[in-house]
C-alpha cells in the first residue's frame, strides 16, 4: 500500500473537477458552502477582498480556525500558505488539510523560490498566469494548477487573460515539431520534459481550475467554456448579498456551463453580487497576480 504517490495527489484534484471550491472564514460559512454544493472549501482568516482592503501582511490562517472548518464539513478542506513559506506548509500538513494552496493572495515569504512541493505528502495547488509559470510549479511538484486572475476584485478580466494565455500556448505547442520544443522550453522558462509532455498530450498533466475574479454564474460559465476544469470562488460568495443562493447558483452554472437557459434561470433574484474593482484602479505594486516567479 502506497500513500501520497503523485497519482493519489493528482487524483483528488480530478475528483474536484466540474466543481466549485469556495473561500470560507468560519465553520458556519463552510457548512453553507457544503449545503450549496461546493466540492471543497478553502479555509481562510480573511477573504482576498478584505486582505486587499485592509493591507498588512497576510499569513496562513490560525490552526484552530482551520481545524474547526475541517470538523464542520465532510468535503475536502484546503488552506493557503505563503509563496515559499515551507514553515507554514509543514504546519498545514501537520494539521492534515487535504490540499495546500501556495498562494499569491498571501504576502510572499520568498521572492525567489517557491516551496519544494515534492517533499510533502499533502498535495499542492499553485496559481499561474501563463503556461511557463504553470509548468514551473508542476516541476516543483504541484498536483493541480489554477489560473490566478486577480483575487478579491470581482473582475473576471485577469482570469480570462491568464486562462487564455495558458490554453493558447498549449494549442501552439501542439503544432510545433520536436526540434522546436527545447527553444520553446527556454522561451517559457519551463522544464523540457513537461513541455514535451504537454505538446504530446495537448493538455496540462494536472487539473486546471480558474481562480481570481469569479463573482457570478455567468462568470463561471465563461471560464468553464474557456477550458477551466472547475472554479475557485473567493470573495464572490460571502461578499455577495445572498451567499447561499449565489453559491448554489454558481455550482449549477459550473455544471451546466453550456446551457445558457439554465444559467439565466439560476442567475435570477440573487441580489447584489460582490462590489467589483476596475483593474486600472489598483496600483501596480498591489497586484497579487504578479507575485510568483
Amino acid at each position: 500500500m502506497q500513500e501520497a504517490t503523485y497519482t493519489v495527489k493528482k487524483g483528488l484534484a480530478q475528483m474536484l473537477k466540474g466543481g466549485v471550491i469556495m473561500d470560507v472564514v468560519t465553520p458556519e460559512q463552510a457548512r453553507i458552502a457544503e449545503d450549496a454544493g461546493a466540492c471543497a472549501v478553502m479555509a481562510l482568516e480573511r477573504v482576498p477582498s478584505e486582505i486587499r482592503a485592509q493591507g498588512g501582511v497576510a499569513r496562513m490562517s490560525p490552526p484552530e480556525l482551520i481545524e474547526q472548518i475541517m470538523d464542520a464539513v465532510t468535503i475536502p478542506v484546503m488552506a493557503k500558505a505563503r509563496i515559499g513559506h515551507f514553515g507554514e506548509a509543514q504546519v498545514l500538513e501537520a494539521l492534515g488539510v487535504d490540499y495546500i494552496d501556495e498562494s499569491e493572495v498571501l504576502t510572499p515569504a520568498d521572492e525567489v523560490n517557491h516551496i519544494d512541493k515534492h517533499a510533502y505528502k499533502v498535495p499542492f495547488v499553485c496559481g499561474a498566469t501563463d503556461l511557463g509559470e504553470a509548468l514551473r510549479r508542476i516541476g516543483e511538484g504541484a498536483a493541480m494548477i489554477r489560473s490566478k486572475g486577480e483575487a478579491g476584485t470581482g473582475n473576471i478580466v485577469e482570469a480570462v487573460r491568464h486562462l487564455r494565455a495558458i490554453t493558447s500556448t498549449i494549442k501552439r505547442l501542439g503544432i510545433l515539431g520536436p526540434e522546436e520544443w527545447m527553444s520553446e522550453a527556454k522561451r517559457l522558462g519551463a522544464p523540457y520534459e513537461l513541455v514535451r509532455e504537454v505538446a504530446g498530450e495537448g493538455k496540462l498533466p494536472v487539473v486546471l481550475f480558474c481562480a481570481g475574479g469569479v463573482a457570478t454564474p455567468a462568470d463561471a460559465a465563461l471560464v468553464m467554456q474557456l477550458g477551466a476544469e472547475g472554479v475557485f470562488v473567493g470573495s464572490g460568495i460571502f461578499k455577495s448579498e445572498d451567499p447561499s443562493r449565489t453559491a448554489a447558483a454558481i455550482v449549477k452554472a459550473t455544471t451546466h456551463f453550456r446551457e445558457p437557459k439554465i444559467i439565466a434561470e439560476v442567475s435570477k433574484h440573487l441580489g447584489k453580487a460582490m462590489p467589483g474593482i476596475e483593474l486600472g484602479a489598483i496600483p501596480e505594486r498591489e497586484l497579487m497576480a504578479a507575485r510568483g516567479w
Binding site: M1, E3, T7, L12, P76, D98, V122
Partner: peptide, 14 residues
Amino acid sequence: ERNAFGRQLQSFET
C-alpha cells in the same frame, strides 16, 4: 462509511 480511511493524507494505491 464515507471517508472511511481518513482525509487526503490517508489516500493510497494498492
